[in-house]
């Protein structure tokens, strides 16, 4: 018994229309333009995941917020948990791009990393 899905690939702005067939344990994806897309298609049916991008509070920087994101996609139904887990997080300058801000956020096994450098000011 096979099941078919059609989803929009969200890994890049191209938005490929993926047609995904699931037969038992086998997942077959067509319509992708890159391997990222193939992987996305496979995951989207089994375990839909998203990169979460948000900000955390930072002190003594040019702006009061530091943009951060999950280093890897997290399960879609955990997005809210990730956001909630970042509430109250305060970071000190300086920060480097890619620096881990929160390890294993909300028990997802994924780290939250800084999106940019932020120097101390004043």
């Amino acid at each position: 018994m096979s099941q078919e899905y059609e989803v929009l690939c969200i890994r890049c702005p191209k938005g490929c229309r993926l047609r995904i067939t699931v037969e038992g344990n086998a997942v077959h994806v067509v319509g992708f333009a890159c391997l990222e897309g193939k992987r996305f298609g496979e995951e989207e049916v089994r375990n839909p995941r998203r990169i979460v991008t948000t900000t955390v509070r930072i002190l003594n920087a040019r702006y009061p917020r530091l943009p951060v994101r999950t280093a890897e996609p997290v399960p879609k139904d955990r997005i809210r948990d990730v956001i909630d887990a970042l509430k109250g997080v305060v970071v000190e300058t300086p920060v480097r791009r890619g620096q881990v801000i929160v390890k294993d956020v909300a028990g997802t096994g994924v780290d939250v990393i800084a999106e940019r450098d932020m120097e101390a000011v004043g």
Partner: peptide, 10 residues
């Protein structure tokens, strides 16, 4: 403006 992100201190 009318509030802060997640109610945190800006």
């Amino acid at each position: 403006f009318n509030g802060t992100v997640r109610g945190e201190e800006p």
